[in-house]
Amino acid sequence: MHSDVLKSKRTLLLIAAGLALSFLVERSGLVSSYVLQILMYVGINIILTLSLNLVNGYMGEFSVGHAGFMAVGAYMASIVTVWVFRNSLGWLAFPVAILAGGAAAAGTSLIVAIPSFRTRGDYLAIVTLAFNMIVKSLLENIEALGGPRGFLGMNRLTNLVWVYVWCAITIYIIRNFVYSNYGRAMLSIREDEVASNLVSVNTRQTKVLVFVISAFFAGVAGALFAHLVQFINPRTFSIQKSTDILVMVYLGGIGSIFGSILGATVYTVLLELLRPLGVWRWVVGPLMLVVLMITRPTGIMGLREFLGFVPREERAERRKEGTAIAAASR
C-alpha cells in the first residue's frame, strides 16, 4: 500500500516535470522556433493517432476519414475565438474554444455513427470516406467561413505547454477508457462482434460511444492545429491528411498507447527530414501504408503496451503473461 502511494506520487511528479520542461522549452529559446513548431506538430499528431487508434486499432473497425472530424474541430474552435470572443481574453478563451471544437466533432460523429453502425463490416470505411469529402466540399462552399480561401484571424494561442497538457489529458482519458468495462467491450468487438453481443455486451452502443470519444479528440487536435498555424482551409483536411493519420496508427501499432506516441513521433519527424524531396515526400505516407499492411499489419507495438500506460491494478496480470503461456502450452 505504502509503495503504491509512492508510485502514484512518482507518476504525478513525472507528469509535472514534463509540464515544467514544456514550459521551459517554450519560453527559454533553447530550441529554434522551427524545432518548437515540429514538437507541437508531434504532439497534435499524437492526439490524432491515439484517437483514431481507438476505432481502428482497439475496436477493429476501419475509419478512414478522420481529418473530417479534425476539420470540424478546427473550424468550430476558430469560430469561437474569432467570432464569439473576438480574440479577447487571450489564453483564457482557449480552453473553451478547444472544448467547443471537440464537442462539435463529437456531435458530428454521432450523425455519422448512428446510421453506419447499423450495418456491419466495411460500410464504416465507405461512410467515413464520404464524410471526409462532404466536410471538405461543404467548407469550400460556405462563403461565410472563407470558402476555398480558408478561415483566418486566429491568434497564435497554441504553444508547447497547451499541446503537452492536451496530450496528457488524451493519454489519461484513453487509457482509463481502455482499461474499463467499456474498453473491454470495445476489444471484444474487435475479436468477435457476434459473440460479444451474445455475452451481454451492448455492441451497438459501445461502437457509437467509442466513435464519439475518438471524434472528440480529433476535434481537440484540430482546434490546437488551427491556433498554431493561424490559417485553415478546407484542403488541409483532405483524404491526404486522413491517410497520414492512418499511417501513424499502423506504423506505431494498433491497440497501443505507446505505439501511437511512437508512430506519430517517427512519422512526423520523418516527413520533416524528407522535406528536400519536395512533392515526392507525399508519396512516402501512402507507400508506407501499403508496405506496412503487407509486412507488419499490426505495427511496431501491435497489441502490446508499455507497462507505464497500464493502470496499476491491471499490471499484475500482464507481468505474469509470459510464464502463464508457457504453462498453458506445457
Partner: peptide
C-alpha cells in the same frame, strides 16, 4: 468463439459487462 487475443480473465470479465454499472464518466476519471 472466444476472444482469442484477450486474456482468459478478460474473456470472463467481458461476460460481466451488464453487471458493472458505472457511467462512462466514472470510467474516464476512475
Amino acid at each position: 468463439r472466444l476472444f482469442r487475443e484477450l486474456s482468459v480473465l478478460d474473456n470472463v470479465r467481458i461476460g460481466h459487462f451488464s453487471q458493472a454499472r458505472y457511467s462512462v464518466g466514472a470510467a474516464l476519471f476512475r
